[in-house]
Design a protein around this nucleic acid. Structure first.
Lengths: 245, 245
DNA sequence: ATATTAAATTAGGAGTACCTAATAAAGGGG
DNA sequence: CCCCTTTATTAGGTACTCCTAATTTAATAT
């Protein structure tokens, strides 16, 4: 299995999760490879039993293809954890180098890395690390941009986009931290957040790409204490009146 | 730079260190690639300025070629240290997986790995890990097979051969441990060793592939205490009378 | 000095994975 | 229902790296 073929499987997996059967066009875009080359490769992957492909019909992974894609994903995310926690990588750097390492990571290395890292449940941006058995399903996540002001949330996941990762890291936003949404600007205005004693304002665009778990408690009380309403587009700065945990 | 080309550079480096200018035959054997293919590749590497190659003249690395080979070697050996010390790999497994990882290890990763591992001076089998400045040159090593009985030594290096590594590891021989050569069989007979309170016998073949640092002290006394002579081919078992450190 | 052997090169091919250009199939709007 | 746009496929070609077989060069031994 070459790096190229592995990249096909990875993208097929990603696209299939999101949109079901995958068109050649989407795959070609995702891989940055000419559509003609994609057709050609899909025929080969089909013959190798990794995808179910029929001309003009769209593509799906077979059992085996999916298994391989998941193995790659697992390796990728474990490397990300290692690079960040132990080698001090930033989110985006970790992603880049994990992209290389995942293709030369035999099963035994994946397993030992997993043990070494203490079986982490999520990669540094909050994506689950697939494992053998069933995953403990995580609390439902919503985009930060959909959370009304006043709610308490835990930051759980950010999209893997280089610019976003660098942006959020620069402002020291940490995953798994608690936060209070102190204001939500109307008409896609910025979202204000109080987390770890810091106030921060995020663009709507960023908030769409950050996913949080809502915490039930203290919603009513927060509102009583004067935190602004979703509809109120007023002052966003918000007083750093109390820590978020 | 592809994995293939990198393998050419690595082998050229290794062979050049050992024997000077490298013949196509040697390189072809070392790489397991047909001589014709080697000729062809050397022309390309020559054009890329990585080797100095002229038909029928043998090959040498250029400055740049050597630099790249050393970078690879450094990555390889650092990975070996990581795999062994942190992931519990055996010598031979560590070597195998490092062989894969070294080709996808950008400079920043090499450096952070080095820091993480605390700038190790040697890889698990005792080869020096090249670094920027000058290496602290290590005490001179001699093959264990050349050491007369009665000498005290420190085990410093073993050749990277799979069967040897597995053999030595199975008998729990540890590098950097002190040992006393208790007997040396005549006519390429086995070498007996007392190390870490254990007696072990090594074949002559193994002893040729293990390199040690001789320690000055206690040579005379050891002999006085009845440790056998180089020429004496008698009993090799030797009593486990005292620990080696 | 030449005949033989060993080493190296050139020639001719194959497999992988990509590309561009040309052609064919699907699908939506009148 | 057919035209036209979009999507997909086929055709033909390139680059890389390997192979075997044939040839050339170099080295050795008489």
């Amino acid at each position: 299995m070459t790096t190229n073929r592995e990249d096909y499987l990875k993208q097929l997996y990603r696209l299939e999760e999101a949109e079901g059967s995958v068109s050649n066009k989407r795959l070609s875009e995702a891989l940055g490879i000419a559509p003609a080359s994609v057709s050609e490769m899909l025929v080969k992957l089909g013959k190798e039993g990794l995808v179910q492909y029929e001309a003009y019909q769209g593509t799906r992974l077979t059992e085996e293809g999916r298994r391989r894609a998941v193995d790659l994903l697992r390796g990728h995310r474990l490397w990300e954890v290692f690079l960040r926690e132990h080698l001090g990588y930033s989110w985006s750097e970790a992603h880049e180098d994990a992209e290389l390492l995942e293709h030369v990571t035999p099963a035994r290395l994946v397993e030992r890395l997993d043990t070494y890292l203490n079986h982490p449940a999520h990669c540094p941006h909050g994506e689950p690390i697939p494992r053998g058995g069933d995953q403990a399903p995580r609390a439902e996540l919503v985009a930060l941009s959909e959370v009304p002001a006043g709610r308490r949330v835990i930051l759980r996941k950010v999209r893997e986009e280089r610019a976003l990762m660098d942006y959020l890291e620069a402002m020291e936003l940490h995953l798994d931290a608690e936060a209070v949404v102190t204001a939500v600007g109307a008409y896609e205005g910025p979202v204000a957040l109080l987390t770890e004693g810091k106030d921060m304002q995020l663009s709507h665009k960023a908030a769409e790409r950050i996913f949080v778990e809502e915490i039930e408690s203290r919603r009513k009380e927060d509102e009583d204490q004067g935190i602004e309403n979703p509809s109120g587009g007023g002052s966003i700065a918000g007083g750093a009146s109390r820590g978020a945990r």
